[in-house]
């Protein structure tokens, strides 16, 4: 399931819903991304996330389909926020459920890595020097690259 929204979300409730009524789920893995109060040595007052709605939907659906194709999962969830967020606020939640832990954990890791380099979001930070666009990090490309052409480990 994919949701792109301005509003906050309740992590506990979302994870509970992901496996509710499905007794073949043996594990749920999740990642929550938060706004930090520092970027390098600069203080961040807030961050505004801009996105390309029509493409965001397509890109996230593709990422989710890829995870479902690679691992034996029961369900996946991506919730991504946009708009103005302050330090400590939740930005993103990704989660995957499966019969066994390996698939759930690996798929969750894959989802957040790919989302970082494929989903059309941009971040404008409010710093003491004014607005500053966040640069895409080479480290993110590298992290996403680890999943290219890699067979997922098979859960037992």
């Amino acid at each position: 399931m994919i949701r792109v929204q301005a509003e906050d979300f309740d992590v506990g409730r979302e994870l509970e819903n992901l496996s509710k009524g499905n007794l073949s789920v043996g594990g749920v893995s999740s990642f929550v991304g938060l706004v930090r109060d520092m970027a390098g040595d600069q203080t961040i007052k807030a961050m505004t996330l801009e996105h390309y709605p029509e493409m965001t939907k397509k890109a996230l659906a593709k990422i989710e389909a890829e995870a479902l194709n690679r691992w034996p999962l029961e369900a996946t969830l991506i919730i991504h926020r946009y708009g103005r967020l302050e330090p400590g606020d939740r930005i993103v939640l990704v989660a995957a459920s499966s019969a066994h832990r390996e698939a759930a954990i690996e798929a969750c890791h894959f989802l957040i890595d790919w989302l970082k380099t494929q989903a059309p979001f941009w971040k404008l930070e409010e710093t003491p020097d004014g607005g500053q666009w966040v640069d895409a990090r080479n480290a993110d490309d590298k992290a996403a690259g680890r999943w290219v052409n890699k067979d997922p480990g098979r859960a037992e």
Binding site: H80, K123, R137
Partner: peptide, 10 residues
Amino acid sequence: VAFFPPVTGG
């Protein structure tokens, strides 16, 4: 056609 800087989701 859309033009944008490298994306930074997550």
